[in-house]
Nucleic acid binder design. Structure first.
Length: 875
RNA sequence: GGGAGUAUAGCUCAGCUGGUUCAGAGCAUCUGCCUUACAAGCAGAGGGUCCGGGGUUCGAAUCCCUGUGCUCCCACCA
């Protein structure tokens, strides 16, 4: 059969993915085996695959496939996140393009559009994961707004409310006066804006003196309820107990003292407008100042601002400036640039606005979660994130769980007509509670008003490892009992707090147990300029395009090769080329082996016997090293070792060693050993490169229908002959040295040369067949050649390659002398160390031993060099 | 402003409790080779003030102090 000289992934990938799906290899159900569970960090339901997903999901797939091959009942639960902010924004945008404003729709109408959008786009990202080769149990696909999920979320909210952990409180939100909605911090852009700093005069009550206050927003004086200065500021010491008059408004407000104030900024005096600035709000809380909200939701001024009512906020600023100037209350203005928050959606300038929000008390809940990580019950990889984690958990703030959106789980709080509210899982329960609470049995559902806000998206995803197994609603079901706690979580460090920490908290609160044992924190995928890859920058390649051009295995390999845990990944397409080249290498190694014919009668040659024994040992050593890497989640290191094992050792040395001459057959034992090695190598590679390994695995031996490399057992490290590996390395050194001589002396590779050896304890003649084949020797002769020669030393063994004419004796001598000089210097440094009594006394004996060995080694080499100089000089 | 991390070859990184795997790997570069599996390859080679400055020690890439650069998280300055 003709086999393509280059690996062509496209057909092979779709063929095998379909095969895996048809045989339900990804599916898991509880059984007698030990489970291995990963829950996917659910991607945004309306998102598309980006490079971060590629990295993240490749790692998960490597872990899952490896666990599956190691005999675990592996279960990787996929799903998507409703991502209320991002999805709602997209739906709003889409509707806008159709000429529909969100404000024109009822909540129900809007949600219908949103669900439609979700149905249309929600599956895309999961389909993309399949292209990558992800072995998720697709039968278990979950969406954070599935009825069961939402029910779990609501149940938890009610439970926490009943436990007294959820409360309502006031908080500043970013208000978009154009979209008439609150925005999350992520949706606010801070832009450098040229504005003015206004210096206003506040009259001190009962005096003609003034305090000058600098502000960028003079219009907010309408909401001023205080003036604040630093307690240690000598300029304002006299203001103790005084009140000042707000300009134009003529309101008398107290002067308060707080070390929040930056004495050096402006005049060191701050006007306090609790309703319109976050910091002012904090000051107001602290000092008991009233909050006067002067804005309507659309950014115009409300009735509390007296004569200015109805004006737009920017018109008001100009108007106020004029009025202040006329009243002589404006000291001066200065040009000033500051950062102004604007809406990502509408571009409107954000108005900080007070609003009622729902909060979850965190401090107590956080304790078990803090402890679990600090005591390594849950391990973070890399461990450096423990510090960051601790810092956050020790200073955890209450979690604002309400969002002013429609897409998400609506908060199950119902307000009574006469004030007060009830919190219940269902409207029916709420009604019953409301009737009881109000003492009005006639109360109807329509009399209750449900809180319009939805829950923060993280409030559903923090339950993810439990809720995907329905463990909130049915805490003792078979699934959760079997799969929980999960094993590994793979995610980005950016969401360590938002998501990981909170999952740990909910795990302890709702299962009394950690949600996962290990957290692998990936790096961030950046471009060559170290910029984070993002859609807005347009610097992210399309992952599907990369897969189409290079194959999924190449892309997976590229992601894995350069991504130690927690290290950012500087993405460059050349890395994928490296992956593709490796695929090609594997492919061609397979082509070579496939081309061999077997001679059943001939016995295994000595050369082949050594080769197979050597590779057997090397395979086991590498396997053991890779296993050790895996236990520490050093996945890139493990891959690099396997990569080198295949490319350098198997292809470069082993195959070259056993490769028969052109069109010559190979003996049966060697052929079988080679196929066996290939089989095991493919299985080692499979978690990283599932497609090509499956394809070739089906070619290297006869397989039955339904067999798959992904369900075959992962080889395990066996005991191996270390001595053999050490000795073989000496042979390889000799071969490299001979190749060097050939290159230096221009001895063509195809011309066989003789090798002379002065055998000693470090020379093993049984390996001569290897030497002969790999270095193309005509013979290995004991002793020293008569004429001119090139020599080298390996350990204590001297080797010589006889040379014809054309050797420059002077050049050789010069080279030897510099080498001798270096050796003598080296010996001197070793002797100095050994001559230091404190070193000999204090250093561990092993260290002293190695120094003595260095000494002996150097002395031997010096002796050999001197001898050669003598012989050469005589010529 | 508060906190954390990091600095090693041109690039991306290993280097664990100080001591022969102490200066490493992969990629890139350079030099030979179209050698019947693979030029997406083979064989070789070069490349470093381990960020600067102090200290501890017989001994420091490794531990301590300090300066500088970069990155991230949180809070964002009237």
């Amino acid at each position: 059969m003709e086999i393509a000289a280059k690996y062509l992934p496209a057909e092979i990938e779709s063929k095998w993915y379909a095969y895996w799906m048809a045989h339900r290899f990804f599916h898991s159900e509880p059984d007698g085996r030990e489970p291995y569970t990963i829950v996917i960090p659910p991607p945004n339901v309306t998102g598309v695959l980006h490079m971060g997903h590629m990295l993240n999901n490749t790692i998960q797939d490597v872990l899952v496939r490896r666990a599956r091959m190691r005999g675990f009942n592996a279960c990787w639960v996929p799903g998507t996140d409703h991502a209320s902010i991002a999805t709602e924004a997209k739906v709003v945008q889409k509707l806008k393009a159709e000429g529909i404003e969100k404000s024109d729709l009822t909540r129900e109408e809007f949600l219908r559009h949103a669900w439609e959008w979700k149905e249309k786009h929600g599956g895309i990202i999961l389909e993309q994961l399949k292209k990558l080769g992800a072995s998720c149990d697709w039968d278990r696909t979950v969406f954070t707004m599935d009825p069961a999920m939402s029910e779990s979320v609501i149940r938890v909210f009610v439970d926490l409310y009943n436990k007294g952990r959820i409360y309502r409180g006031v908080r500043m939100v970013n208000w978009d006066p154009q979209a008439l909605t609150a925005l999350s911090d992520e949706e606010v852009f801070y832009q450098e804006t040229n504005g003015k700093l206004y210096y206003l005069r506040y009259k001190i009550e009962g005096s003609d003196d003034c305090v000058i206050v600098a502000t960028t927003r003079p219009e907010t004086i309408l909401g001023d309820t205080g003036l604040c200065v630093h307690p240690d500021d000598p300029r304002y010491a006299a203001l103790k107990g005084k009140r000042v008059i707000v300009p134009l408004v003529n309101r008398s407000v107290p002067v308060v003292f707080d070390d929040y104030i930056d004495i050096g900024f402006g005049t060191g005096a701050l006007k306090v407008t609790p309703a319109h600035d976050v910091n002012d709000y904090m000051l107001g809380e602290k000092h008991g100042l009233e909050a006067i909200d002067i804005f309507n939701d659309n950014g115009t001024i409300n009735d509390r601002a007296g004569i200015y009512a109805g004006m737009d906020r920017f018109d008001l600023r100009e108007r106020i400036e004029i009025d202040l100037r006329e009243a002589g209350l404006l000291e001066k203005t200065e040009d000033y640039t500051n950062k102004v928050g604007t809406s990502e959606r509408t571009g409107a300038v954000i108005e900080p606005k007070l609003s009622m929000q729902w909060f979850l008390k965190m401090e107590e809940l956080a304790q078990p979660a803090l402890k679990a990580v600090m005591e390594d019950i849950i391990r973070l990889y890399p461990a450096k994130f423990k510090n960051t984690y601790r810092h956050w958990m020790e200073n955890v703030k209450d979690w604002c769980v309400s969002r002013q959106l429609w897409w998400g789980q609506q908060i199950p709080a119902y307000y009574l007509p006469g004030g007060g509210c009830v919190v219940a899982e269902t409207p029916a329960e709420a009604l019953a509670m409301a009737r009881e609470k109000s003492g009005n049995p006639a109360l109807a559902m329509d009399d209750l008003r449900q809180d319009p806000d939805v829950l923060d998206t993280w409030f559903s995803s923090w339950l993810w490892p439990i809720s995907v197994f329905d463990g909130i609603r049915h805490p003792n079901n078979e699934q959760i009992d079997y799969y929980y706690p999960t094993n590994d979580l793979v995610t980005a460090p950016e969401i360590l707090f938002f998501w990981v920490a909170r999952m740990i908290i909910s795990g302890y609160e709702y299962r009394g147990e950690m949600p996962f044992r290990n957290v692998y924190l990936t790096g961030i995928v950046r471009d060559k300029l170290r910029r984070k890859m993002s859609k807005s920058l347009g610097n992210s390649p399309d992952p599907l395009d990369l897969i189409a051009r290079y194959g999924a295995d190449s892309v997976r390999l590229a992601m894995m090769l350069c991504s130690g845990a927690g290290n950012d990944l500087m993405f460059d397409e050349s890395q994928i080329e490296q992956g593709r080249n490796f695929c090609n290498k594997i492919w061609n190694a397979f082509r070579l082996v496939k081309s061999w014919t077997v001679d059943e009668s001939s016995a295994q040659s000595e050369n082949n016997r050594i080769a197979t024994a050597w590779f057997e040992a090397l395979f086991n050593r590498t396997m053991a090293e890779a296993e050790a890497d895996f236990t520490e989640y050093r996945i890139s290191d493990a891959l690099m070792k396997i990569y080198k094992l295949f490319w350098d050792e198997f292809s470069g040395w082993y195959l070259e060693l056993v490769k028969p001459a052109y069109r010559q057959p190979i003996d049966r034992p060697t052929y079988d050993a080679t196929i066996g090695f290939f089989d095991r190598l493919l299985r080692m590679l499979h978690p990283f490169m599932p497609f090509i390994s499956e394809e070739i695995w089906h070619h290297v031996a006869e397989r039955r229908e339904g067999e798959s490399i992904m369900t075959s057992p992962m080889p395990t490290a066996q005991r191996y002959d270390e001595k053999l590996l050490e000795r073989f390395d000496l042979v390889r050194e000799a071969i490299t040295a001979i190749r060097n001589i050939r290159k230096e002396k221009n001895l063509p590779n195809r011309d066989a040369v003789e090798l002379y050896v002065k055998p000693d304890g470090n020379f093993y003649p049984q390996y001569n067949p290897v030497l002969e084949k790999m270095a193309n020797l005509s013979a290995v002769v004991e002793g020293r050649p008569a004429g001119l020669n090139a020599a080298f030393l390996i350990k204590s063994t001297e080797y010589f390659v006889p040379l014809g004419d054309g050797v420059n004796v002077e050049e050789e001598l010069a080279k030897l002398r510099t080498e001798l000089e270096y050796l003598q210097g080296f010996l001197a440094s070793v002797m100095k160390k050994l001559g230091n009594e404190r070193f000999v006394a204090n250093a561990p004996s092993a260290v002293v031993q190695t120094e003595r060995a260095k000494q002996a080694d150097a002395e031997a080499k010096i002796k050999a060099a001197q001898e050669r100089i003598e012989t050469l000089s005589r010529l």
